[in-house]
Design a protein around this nucleic acid. Structure first.
Lengths: 138, 138
DNA sequence: GTAACTGCAAAATATTTGCATCCTT
DNA sequence: AAGGATGCAAATATTTTGCAGTTAC
């Protein structure tokens, strides 16, 4: 079971503010990744753009969310799993981005494979980004 | 054997201009991916920023280069393989981005595996991005 | 009460567009 | 000569920074 909103914030020594609660809630409700613009729209005019930038940055630093690479290099964020800790997230599932609707999914059950790299290369993180048509845009 | 610079441009119905030759040359000399800023620096003050943007966009449209996703969502480009054609590139090798020096490598010999996706998801492209320390930053 | 967080203004950066001029074919 | 490519100026978009006022604890 995932922690609640307030719990998660406290666990990370963050004060519980409206913007943090709201933004974290958006992530918990979403089954995929969110871009800055998504959050801006979904939260209405409630918060300042800058607050959203800073909140996202704070969440990334605390390991609550992480950025995911996308084929079009747009910046998107997704919730980390519980095991993630500050600065180190273990996120070995695959992300899928729909070319049509732009929705980004976390395919929790598709695991990124271990790769053997050439000598001298040391992996700390492996991201797999699949693009195509999602189940709603077929 | 890869095509020469002028050959590649002509093959894609592009007129052969100084900026295109120079930028394509930079890609052919590089063993990895280049960002807009890399090109701007490596070409000196020879070309306008805007020209670089437009040249990169043209190359992407023609399938000469493609963007690669990166863990930090910076926009980087790499040469497509010869098999790439307009709008469709087949690029199944893995990219590696060094956390220290920022260099992005194309690991041509590490092949991205086939993944089985959930029902309803159709992949047109799969990118694998590995981050860590490269052979020069160990 | 104090430290931390937010909103506003503004700076810095990145990207796109319009148009006149120049270059390739 | 004609069409496309470039350079410059400027419009847009994105992200960061500084600071004063507000809020959580």
């Amino acid at each position: 079971m995932r922690y609640g909103i307030n719990e998660t914030l406290k666990k990370n020594q963050l004060s519980v503010t409206d913007s943090r609660k709201k933004i974290l809630e958006l992530f918990m409700r979403s089954n995929g990744a969110l871009a800055h613009a998504d959050i801006e729209h979904q939260s209405g005019t409630e918060f300042d753009r800058v607050t959203i930038y800073r909140t996202l940055q704070t969440f990334v630093e605390k390991g609550i969310i992480h950025t995911i690479p996308t084929a079009d290099n747009s910046v998107r964020y997704a919730l980390c799993k519980d095991e993630c800790s500050e600065g180190h997230h273990h996120d070995n599932h695959v992300h899928f981005m729909c070319d049509d609707c732009g929705t980004t999914y976390c395919l929790d059950h598709v695991i990124a494979p271990q790769l053997s790299l050439p000598d001298g290369f040391n992996a700390t993180r492996t991201d797999v980004v699949v693009s195509g048509k999602c189940k709603n845009c077929e």
